[in-house]
Write a protein that binds this DNA or RNA. Structure first.
Lengths: 334, 334
DNA sequence: TTGTATGCGTTATCAA
DNA sequence: TTGATAACGCATACAA
C-alpha cells in the first residue's frame, strides 16, 4: 500500500499538502491539487483510515450492538442503519450481545476501544444506569427500544404497552372472551410492557386475568412452541391467542396445527412486530406494526446530527404501534 | 481515556513493560505484572485498538461484504461469522454491496483502507478477475458462493445447478409434466446455474423446455409476484412451479392465492435456500437446503486459519444441496 | 526481566 | 499557498 509520503514525493510537494487535498481542507492551488491527484491515481493510493483515526481522533465509524444477527427483526434494523450512515461516508461495526450482560458490556467495550465515534445500542441485559453512565462519561450513544429521561433526545422508542393493548383489544372486539397470552421474557422491559398492555386491555373490558392462560417465552420460535404446549396442557379453553412477538406466534401456530385446529376458525392468533414473513404465512398473521427499520434510521440520524454535525435531518423519537389486521384473526364463531 | 503512558507512570514502569502485560508477550515478573494490572484497573484503562492496529499492522478485524443486510438469508450468515470470529477475539465490519459493481468495489475499498486483516466476500457484481486480482495482490479473502480455481482453498461453495436439478426432479417424480420456473437474475452466476439445473432435469426426463414457462426475477419478493403474474398471463398451463429462491416463492404464492388456487392441490411449489420462514408457511414450503450459516462459519474458519494461524479447525469448502420435502409439493392429482 | 528509542501513516500547528 | 514538525497511542527491535 502506498503511503501519503510516497504520494508527496511523486508529486513533489510536502506531506501537509497531500493531506490538504485528501481532506479538502485549507487552500490548495488547482495546479498543485492536480499534481497530487495524479500522483495518487498513479500509485493507487488510498488513505489508511486507521492512521487517519489515530491522528484525527475520529474514526468515521459507528458501533452497533444488537441482541442477535440472525432472524427477521434486527436484519432490517441493521440494513436501514447502514444505508443511512453510508450515505454520509460513515460505516458500521456490528456486534451481537445475545441479551447477556457480560457479552453486552464486552461488546460495548470493544466498540469503544475501537474508537467508534458513536454507538447505536439495542440492549436488554445492561442496566439503565450503565447506559446513562456511558452517555454521561462522554460516549455518544443512541438508544433503540429504551427510554431514558437523561438522554431522551437520543432514544428511539415505541410504546410497547399500547401495542399489546391494541392487539388484545382487537381480539376482544372480535368477540373473544377467552384469551391466552404467550409473553416475552419478563425480565426484559419490553416483555413486561407488553404483558402490561395485555392486562390493561383485559381489565378495561371487564375480563378477568387468569395466570393459567399465560406462558412465558423468550421471543424465539422454539419457546413459542413450548409455551403453546403448556397452554394446551392446562386445559383452560381459549379462542384467542395473543403473542408478544411474531416469531413465537409462528412457533405456536405449528403446535396449534399439530393438535388439529384450524386458523382462524378454532383459534384467532395475533403477533407483534410485523416482521416481513408474517405476510407469507397462511392465513397471514395479524400483528402490531413495529417500524424497526425506520427506528434504526432515526438512530442513525441522531448520530449524524450529534456527532457529525449533519443538519436538516428530520428525526422522530417516538413511534406509535399500529394494528395490522389479517387473516389469522376473525370474529368469534364466524 | 487513559493511555498506556499514564499506566506506566502510575505503575512506575516503562511503556514497554505495560505493553508486555497487555499482550502477554515477553517475560514479566508476577510482581511487576501485578503492579501494572493494578494501575490499569485504577485508571480504567483500555488499549486503544486503533493505535494497536497502526503499530502492529494488524487490526484484528475482518471485513464482511454481503449483498443485503435485511431479509432472511444473510442475517444467518452474518450471525455465524460473528460468532465464530468473536470466539477468537476478532471482530467484524459489515458492509452491504447491493449487488452493484460500484458499491461492491467501494465497500471492498473501504474495508481494505480500514486495514481489515481479511475479507469475507459474498459478491455478485464484481468480476472474477477483480477478486483474483485482489487475492493475488496480497489481500486475504474468503469467498462465499463462488468458486475460483486460483483460490479454491478459500472458496466456500455449493452446487447450485445440482440443487435446482434436485428440486425440479422432485416435482417430476411426483408426476408433474408441466412445470414453470421463476428464475433468479440471469446475470448472476447462481441465477444461471440454477436455471441450468432446471433445464437439465427437464432434459433428463424427456420434457421439453418452453420459454413461456420461465420468468426472471431478482430474488426479492415483489419480483416473485410479478413473475407469477406474467406466467399466469401467458396461459400456458402448469401444475408445478419451481422457484430459484424461497423469497420469490413466497411472493409467487401470494399471487397464486389471489387467483383462487389452493396449494398443493392446484399447484405444487418448491423454493430454494430453506430460509427459516419456510417452516412457518402453510403449507410449509418444500425447498432445497442451502446451509448458509454453516458456510459463513467455514469462511470465518478460513481466515482464522490463514490469517490468524489458528490450528485444528475443521474446514469444509464444498457443500451439497439437499431436498427438503414439505407440504407445498404433492403428487399430481392427489 | 526491564527500559530506550524508533516507527506505524496520518492530522494539525506553526512558520515561512 | 506551502512546508517542517510535533503529536496520536501503541508495538517492537535493541540495549541494558
Amino acid at each position: 500500500m502506498a503511503t501519503i509520503y510516497e504520494v508527496s514525493e511523486l508529486a513533489g510537494v510536502s506531506l501537509a499538502t497531500v493531506s490538504r487535498v485528501i481532506n479538502n481542507s485549507g487552500k490548495v492551488t488547482p495546479a498543485t491539487r492536480e499534481k497530487v491527484e495524479a500522483a495518487m491515481r498513479e500509485l493507487g493510493y488510498r488513505p489508511n483510515s486507521i492512521a487517519q483515526s489515530l491522528a484525527s481522533n475520529r474514526s468515521n465509524s459507528v458501533g452497533v450492538l444488537v441482541p442477535e444477527l440472525h432472524g427477521p427483526f434486527f436484519g432490517s434494523m441493521l440494513g436501514s442503519i447502514e444505508d443511512e450512515l453510508r450515505a454520509y461516508g460513515k460505516h458500521v461495526i456490528i456486534t451481537a450481545g445475545h441479551s447477556d450482560e457480560e457479552k453486552e458490556k464486552d461488546s460495548i467495550g470493544f466498540l469503544v476501544s475501537r474508537q467508534c465515534d458513536a454507538l447505536i445500542l439495542h440492549v436488554y441485559a445492561v442496566s439503565n444506569d450503565f447506559v446513562t453512565d456511558l452517555h454521561e462519561s462522554g460516549t455518544r450513544v443512541a438508544l433503540i427500544g429504551r427510554d431514558l429521561p437523561q438522554m431522551a433526545a437520543n432514544c428511539i422508542c415505541i410504546d410497547n404497552e399500547q401495542g399489546q393493548y391494541l392487539a388484545t383489544k382487537s381480539l376482544i372486539e372480535l368477540g373473544h372472551t377467552q384469551l391466552a397470552y404467550i409473553a416475552g421474557p419478563l425480565w426484559k422491559s419490553d416483555g413486561q410492557q407488553r404483558m402490561a398492555g395485555f392486562r390493561r386491555a383485559l381489565a378495561e373490558h371487564g375480563q378477568p386475568f387468569d395466570e393459567r392462560c399465560v406462558a412465558e417465552g423468550n421471543y424465539q420460535e422454539a419457546s413459542g412452541q413450548r409455551a403453546m404446549r403448556r397452554l394446551l396442557e392446562r386445559r383452560v379453553p381459549f379462542t384467542g391467542l395473543v403473542c408478544a412477538n411474531d416469531v413465537m406466534a409462528a412457533g405456536a401456530i405449528v403446535v396449534v396445527r399439530e393438535s388439529g385446529m384450524t386458523l382462524p376458525r378454532d383459534l384467532s392468533v395475533i403477533g407483534f412486530d410485523n416482521v416481513f414473513f408474517t405476510r407469507y404465512m397462511h392465513p397471514a398473521l395479524s400483528t402490531i406494526n413495529y417500524p424497526i427499520a425506520e427506528m434504526g434510521q432515526m438512530a442513525a440520524r441522531c448520530v449524524l446530527r450529534d456527532v457529525y454535525g449533519v443538519e436538516g435531518l428530520e428525526i422522530r423519537n417516538r413511534f406509535e404501534p399500529q394494528l395490522v389486521s389479517r387473516g389469522s384473526t376473525a370474529l368469534l364463531g364466524a
